[in-house]
Deep mutational scan, measured.
Amino acid sequence: DHWEIRVGDITIHLKDVDEEIIRWVEEALRNGDDLEEIKRWVEEVLR
């Protein structure tokens, strides 16, 4: 699977990601969370 999350001008590409993570990231972006923080979290989860 390949996911693209778009929020404003930001697009995040994710592969082999659980839908729950996608929802979490979308929510975090909508809440204005720091992008670097989100990326770190996702990388942590995917490890």
Rank of each mutant, 00 (worst) to 15 (best):
R23F: 07
E4T: 02
V17M: 12
I21T: 08
R40L: 08
N31S: 06
L14P: 03
E43H: 05
A28R: 13
W41V: 14
E36C: 05
E20W: 15
D34Q: 09
E4H: 05
R30G: 05
I21Y: 03
L46C: 05
D33H: 10
E20M: 07
L46F: 07
E36N: 08
R6Q: 10
D18R: 10
D18C: 03
V42M: 05
R6A: 04
I21D: 01
K15I: 12
E36A: 08
V42D: 00
G32I: 11
L14I: 08
W24S: 05
D16C: 04
A28K: 14
V7H: 10
D1C: 15
L35Y: 09
V7W: 12
L35C: 00
V42S: 00
D34R: 06
T11W: 10
I21H: 03
D33V: 15
V45R: 03
A28C: 01
D18H: 06
V7L: 13
I5P: 00
R40T: 05
D9W: 08
D16T: 11
E36M: 07
I5L: 11
W24V: 08
L14R: 03
K39S: 06
K15Y: 07
D1T: 14
W24R: 13
E20L: 09
D33T: 14
R40V: 03
E43I: 10
E37N: 10
D33F: 10
V25Y: 02
R47V: 15
E27K: 14
E26T: 15
I5M: 05
K15E: 06
D18N: 14
R47S: 15
V7D: 05
I5C: 03
E36F: 04
G32V: 09
V42Q: 00
D16M: 04
L46E: 01
D16N: 12
D1G: 11
I21L: 08
R23H: 08
V42R: 00
A28T: 11
G8V: 05
K15F: 10
I22F: 13
A28H: 10
K39Q: 11
R23A: 09
D16H: 10
V7E: 08
E37G: 10
E36G: 07
A28Q: 08
E20A: 10
E19S: 14
L35D: 04
I5V: 08
H13R: 10
R47H: 15
N31T: 07
L46I: 12
D18G: 13
E27P: 00
I38C: 01
V45G: 03
E26P: 00
W41Q: 02
I22E: 02
N31Y: 05
K39I: 14
W3M: 04
N31I: 03
H13A: 09
E19C: 02
R30C: 02
I10Q: 10
N31L: 12
E20N: 11
E26W: 15
I22H: 05
R6E: 09
D33S: 10
E43L: 10
V42K: 00
G8H: 08
T11H: 08
V17G: 04
H13W: 12
K39T: 08
E37S: 14
E36H: 05
E43G: 01
I21G: 02
W41F: 11
D34I: 15
L29E: 01
I5N: 02
W3P: 01
I38Q: 00
K39M: 15
D9C: 00
I22N: 01
